[in-house]
Amino acid sequence: MKVLVPVKRVVDYNVKVRVKSDGTGVDIANVKMSMNPFDEIAVEEAVRLKEKGVATEIVAVSCGVTQCQETLRTAMAIGADRAILVECADELQPLAVAKLLKALVDKEQPGLVILGKQAIDDDCNQTGQMLAALAGLPQATFASKVEVADGFASVTREVDGGLETLKIRLPAVITTDLRLNEPRYVTLPNIMKAKKKTLEVVKPADLGVDVTPRIKTLKVGEPPKRGAGIKVPDVATLVDKLKNEAKVI
């Protein structure tokens, strides 16, 4: 079974981004970029499925600027066999990415597509579900456990209040939650090997997909600032402040 793993290049999760003063967006020039943390978990899960003999080939995919090649090399260093970059300099929104991925699903015919549950930049949490809809596949989102057998995947999902388990027919789309696994570190020999693996570059037009944004960003602003707080010397003062100043207890 072939597994397709879409990965996204995003601002590193440790970076505190700054809003541009002209309100057009956040300043990501010269900021450290990394693979979206949920996508690392997705690649790791695909590699584990291959190690168990369930998956035969792992194809990593990224959509975006030329530099996404670095993200794909990282995916291949973790264990993906080859990569496809859908190169596009314009803004890509989840619906456009889902359409690009749908075209690749048609071409590659994977048994499973594993995505991260959300990207930490736009915080959308949409692409996996949209891909499943467009490709007419069942979905299991926010997965914390995946077992594949006999043409079905049994997936435990993190839902409000606890966990639930679904059985979905393959091919299917799964999105990863944090607890699915602990991604491995990439080793230097694997980084060297990843440089020799195939990385194919295509354009949205080659896939026949229109990527025009459907949502216009009018403005990006700072969130409201909280007023400065105070440090209290002891528990008694804290209780007093909560009772008499904030009046919350």
């Binding site: 981004v17 956040v26 930049d121 969130p223």
Partner: peptide, 8 residues
């Protein structure tokens, strides 16, 4: 967006 560090 960006973990609540910006409002779009």
């Amino acid at each position: 967006i960006y973990a609540g560090n910006a409002i779009a």
